[in-house]
C-alpha cells in the first residue's frame, strides 16, 4: 500500500504544468529584436539587399550604358551619384555593384563556413588527424587572408567565381578553428554519450548531435566573414584582380575612378560609402547575434 501513495504523489506534484511559453526560436527573435545594434545592422543590410534586388526597377537597368556626352557629371537630380569617365551612371553601377559584392560576400562566407565545418569536424572527430589538419590550417592562417586570396585568384584567373573560391579558402582556417573548438567541447557532453547509449552511429552523432550545436558560433563568424569578404573583394578589385572590369562590383567602380579622384571624387566616394555601410551593417548584425547566441549570456536565461 505504500506503493499506492507513492504512485499518486508524482502525478499530483507534476500536474502543475508551466504556463505556455513562447518557443525557443521566438525567444531568440525577440531577444535579437531588443538588441539595438542588431536592429540597426539588420536594417542597414536589409536596405542594401532590397535596393540591390530592386535595381532594375529603380534605375534604367543598364549599369554599363556609356554616354560620352555625359562624362564626369557631378551628382545631380538626373545622376544622383554623378557619372564616370565613360558617362556611366554611378548610382546605377553602385546598385548593380551591390548585387555582385553581396553575392561574393555571401557565397564566400557560406563556402568558408561549409569548408570550415567539414575540416573542423574532421579534426575534432578523428583525433589522429587533428594535429596534421590543424598545422595545415595554422600555416594557411599565417598568410594574410588577402595575400592568399591574391595567390589563389591569380591561379584561377579573373572571374567572379574565382574571387569567391579565393576568399572562401582564405577564411576556411578560422572557420575550421571555431567549429573544431565547439565540437571538441560538445563531443564530451552527456547528450552525446546518451546518443551513443541509444545505439547511434558516428554519422548520426556528428550530424544530429554535434554539428547543430556548433552552429551558433559558426553563424556569428559567418556574418563577420561576410563583411571581410566584401572588403577583400574591394581590395582585390582595386588591385586589378577582382571580377573582370565590365562587372560593376564596388571594388571595380572605385578602381576605375582611381585616376580621376581629384576631378571626379564622386566616382570613388559613393561605392566607398556603400562598402563601409555594408561592412558596418553586417558587423553590427554579427555583434547582435554573438550577444544573443553567446553561451555565457544564455546561462542568464
Amino acid at each position: 500500500m505504500t506503493d499506492q501513495t507513492a504512485i499518486q504523489s508524482p502525478s499530483t506534484m507534476t500536474t502543475t504544468a508551466p504556463p505556455p511559453m513562447p518557443s525557443r526560436s521566438r525567444v531568440l527573435i525577440r531577444k535579437l529584436w531588443r538588441h539595438r545594434s542588431f536592429r540597426l545592422g539588420a536594417g542597414i543590410v536589409l536596405v542594401i539587399v532590397v535596393l540591390a534586388l530592386l535595381a532594375p526597377f529603380i534605375t534604367d537597368g543598364s549599369p554599363n550604358k556609356m554616354s560620352l556626352r555625359d562624362r564626369f557629371t557631378p551628382p545631380s537630380a538626373e545622376h544622383p551619384f554623378g557619372t564616370d569617365n565613360f558617362g556611366r551612371d554611378i548610382f546605377t553601377r553602385v546598385l548593380y555593384g551591390a548585387r555582385i559584392s553581396l553575392w561574393i560576400g555571401f557565397a564566400s562566407a557560406m563556402l568558408a563556413a561549409a569548408g570550415g565545418a567539414i575540416v573542423g569536424m574532421a579534426s575534432a572527430w578523428f583525433r589522429r588527424l587533428d594535429g596534421i589538419i590543424m598545422r595545415i590550417m595554422d600555416a594557411l592562417l599565417a598568410f594574410p587572408a588577402i595575400l592568399l586570396a591574391i595567390g589563389i585568384n591569380a591561379a584561377l584567373g579573373p572571374q567572379v567565381t574565382s574571387v569567391i573560391i579565393a576568399l572562401a579558402s582564405a577564411y576556411v582556417p578560422r572557420m575550421a578553428r571555431i567549429v573544431r573548438a565547439a565540437a571538441l567541447v560538445i563531443r564530451e557532453l552527456d547528450y552525446v554519450d546518451a546518443a551513443r547509449v541509444s545505439g547511434a552511429g558516428a554519422t548520426r552523432i556528428i550530424f544530429r548531435h554535434i554539428l547543430p550545436n556548433c552552429m551558433a558560433p559558426l553563424l556569428v563568424s559567418v556574418t563577420f566573414v561576410f563583411a571581410y569578404a566584401i572588403l577583400a573583394e574591394a581590395a582585390l578589385s582595386f588591385l586589378g584582380i577582382g571580377p573582370p572590369p565590365p562587372h560593376p562590383s564596388w571594388g571595380n567602380i572605385i578602381a576605375e575612378g582611381r585616376d580621376y579622384s581629384v576631378e571626379a571624387w564622386w566616382i570613388m566616394l559613393f561605392p566607398g560609402l556603400a562598402i563601409s555601410l555594408a561592412a558596418l551593417g553586417t558587423n553590427l548584425l554579427g555583434d547582435g547575434l554573438r550577444d544573443v547566441l553567446d553561451p555565457r549570456l544564455k546561462m542568464e536565461q
Binding site: D190, Y191, A194, R196, S198, G199, P212, N213
Partner: peptide
C-alpha cells in the same frame, strides 16, 4: 551498437546536460 539502447540502456547523473538542446 545494436545492443546499446535496444538491450542495454543507461541514464545519466545530470539531466540538465544529457538532452540535446537543439
Amino acid at each position: 551498437r545494436d545492443l546499446r539502447g535496444r538491450d542495454i540502456a543507461m541514464i545519466f547523473q545530470d539531466p540538465m546536460h544529457s538532452l540535446n538542446p537543439v
